Amino acid sequence: MSEFFTPQMVLLILMSAAATYVTRIAGYLLISRLNAMPPRLEAALNAVPAAVLTTLVAPAFFAGGTDVKLAMTAALLVGLRLSAIPMLIIGWIVVLAARYFIG
């Protein structure tokens, strides 16, 4: 366990934390100094949640089996009409049923 706590590893963790903090605070400071947000910047910031969701969902969809594809498709269809909790419940039910019946 001590090989994980070498001085180089601790330095790497601290530098990563500092880099993360600096990038987050720099973005906040940059945007807070703007009097009016340019439309292109606002459009780019509005696209971030969809981009993050895509990077999380797409690999699971394409790397997953039939059960995952069925559950994600069902969750998508339910999510278009209902809120997040019913979407999660239906997704879980579909993946459990697919794993039970398909294998």
Rank of each mutant, 00 (worst) to 15 (best):
G27E: 07
F4C: 00
A74I: 02
G91N: 07
I89V: 12
P86G: 01
T23D: 02
R81A: 02
N35I: 10
R33D: 11
A26V: 02
T73I: 13
F4N: 01
P49V: 12
L80F: 08
I102A: 13
A36D: 01
L14F: 14
M15R: 06
S16P: 02
P86R: 02
P86I: 01
I13R: 08
A51Y: 08
F5P: 03
I90A: 15
T55K: 08
V78A: 04
A43W: 09
L56Q: 08
L88V: 13
A98Q: 01
M1L: 06
M87E: 00
A36Y: 01
A17I: 09
G91I: 04
D67L: 07
M15A: 14
I31H: 04
R33A: 11
P49C: 11
N35M: 06
L77Y: 05
A84H: 04
V94D: 04
L11F: 13
A51V: 14
I85D: 05
V95A: 15
N46K: 14
T55L: 15
A60Y: 08
L56F: 14
V94N: 06
A18E: 01
I89Y: 01
F4Q: 06
L41V: 01
A43C: 01
I89N: 00
M9D: 02
G91W: 11
N35H: 07
G65R: 08
L45S: 03
M9Y: 08
M87D: 00
Y28E: 11
A44C: 02
T20A: 12
P39E: 12
G65H: 07
P38K: 03
T54C: 14
L56Y: 11
T23N: 09
